[in-house]
Write a protein that binds this DNA or RNA. Sequence first.
DNA 1: GACATATCTAAAGCC
DNA 2: TAGATATGTC
Length: 729
Amino acid sequence: MQDYLSKLNKEQYEAATCVDGALLILAGAGSGKTNTMTHRIAYMIKELGVSPYSVLALTFTNKAAGEMRERVEALIGRTPGMWIQTFHSACLRILRAHAERLGYGRSFVVYDPADQKSVIRSISKALDIDDKAFNAASLLGFISARKNSGVSAAEFEKSSFSRPDGKLLAAVYSAYEARLLKNNAMDFDDLLINALKLFERHPDILADYQKRFRYIMVDEYQDTNMIQYRLMQLLARAHGNICVVGDDDQCIYQWRGADIRNILEFEKDFPGARVIRLERNYRSSANIINAAHSIIVRNESRKSKRMRTDAADGEKIEYYRANDDKEEARWISEKIRAVMRKRPELGYSDFAVLYRNNAQSRRFEESLISKGLPYRVLSGMRYYDRAEVKDMIAYMRLVINPDDDVSLLRIINTPRRGIGKAKIDAVNALAGTKDISALEAMRELGIGEALSNLYSSLELEKDSLSVSEIYDILLDKSGYIDALRAQESPEADSRIENILEFRSEIIEKQQEAADNEEEFGIEKFMEDLALASDIDNHDPNEDAVVLMTLHSAKGLEFPVVFMPGMETGLFPSYRSFDKPGGVEEERRLCYVGMTRAKERLFMSSAEWRTMYGRRDVTGESQFLKEIDPKYLEGHALYERKLREAERYSSSAAVGERSYVSPIAIIKQMKEKPKRQTLAGVELNTGDKVEHTKFGTGSVVGIDGNIISVRFEEGIKKLAKDMAPLIKLE
DNA sequence: GACATATCTAAAGCC
DNA sequence: TAGATATGTC
């Protein structure tokens, strides 16, 4: 046995050396999954003499791909030819080579969500759609959901009569598809879908890739959607050598199309598949593992498994119920201080605050600043999403793809060129009637000649210029930077700074490529940008407390983890209540969060929370009650305190639960008189009720799990399962 | 066409 | 509350 393999445990070793045929590795949180996969690749190449050229390993994030690549390299050195990539970059790479077969130009661009939105908005305008009833985001969500379940625009049109808004949606959907094709652009979904189409329609191409990729591995298999699943099926069909790694308990992206059945039914899809379970946890203390387990077992649809550990019990999970969100944040900062005092070996970066949504981050930032603790927020906002950087990207995209109308419209009047609404409409109209690009239409109309001339000359020169030279020309000739300089405002200065930072990044990449004797064209650069994300920028070496959402934390680990906002409606989110399986997905998210912690886990909630400008009383998350109290400190204490307080209060309210009332965020709902039984009381709109906190009020609406009641201080929305309400006669 | 003011709405975000 | 967008005014 090779030395490097001897570090694996029995199951890991089995998984790493089981190379032929189908293999499902059920890898629990912290079970050494990446290690197993990298050793498997190393074993194939080094011991079995498999050519790196025939290995395809797919991940979901750049970070995961980079990490895997690095660790394989550490084991067996650099091995060119191997594909360790994200699904999207692998598909993009394949499509680059064959886009013409699908009717796209070779230099198609990739649209990000902002580009998609602007396409949708322009379609809504053209089709005269009420964008209040159908906002861009929901239309996009609808289209994306169709696309990812394999329903094309044409197919949807045929079935569109089955819903009242079907005709409209079908029109938007097909216009959207047509527009992207005309612009020679693909969105993120298209990268996967078109790769699939390519394989389905062109068996010769599929056969080439089947022949090449003899060994396929898929990471985070529980998060694959239908398209990714079909891609895998096609590629693996020829030889059946497919190894998927995942954990159904960590499937937290169903809302994004992940299909948990892919992992649950793997054995059906590949009869005779081997299943290996990695159930030994090397990350967390026993208390944390056991507490997380006590929550996740409440989910019905899951493969049975149990994480085990040899680690000591460690300290209990500590729970704190703060008075309000501000105090909760203060408590966290103080805890960080206190833990650091006790454990001087810990640095700031050993602490993470994991919350349910980005809006929560502000409170923590404020309190960390006031305590002088360094922190870093990882939000969804990418560096590349800053307006000025996006502008420059749009300028560059047009160089490689003059058909990209979305980019042109973005920059047509940025900086101001005196091209307003009327002129833009004229450009769009001409482009539409003559079926030409907007840039072409500009030329014909003689609008913005400086801009179109800039592109005409770049068209000729671009091949003899480096990326940074093109960038400089654009920056200078477009007047972009001059316009900012002229503003002489601090805001404009920071934009200039960002633009120059972007410039140095280009130069850096250019240099790097030159050092490695790799090609570096503007196309390549644009591609890297399109597929980049902010979370990739998480630098574990930076000594700062990390703030991020629970979702982004997947795959990471920290000695000390805080999970604030353990409140009904916030976590689990009220939006999950009326979705089938919604709360189960939230529970998995809770499980993911808890299992990020190695040594200490702190949870908290706030009795009063200000959200969307409103201050409301909250109820404690059901997840707190689901944790076996053996592992939790603080919760029972809080309940007792409340019971005592209530014994002395004169409140006449009787509720199923004796403490706090729930939540309060939700849209204004329609008046739907409905009868409903809440906590044993039948309610109807108009009924007078009494509430422990708010006094008497009258029911104004009932909507699924949530009832709204008008109290003196305003309308409150109460979650049904906890509402401590009584009806008054 | 540019700017100021009013109105609306609100999850998670990988690629 | 805050940001994005819609509408109104010069």
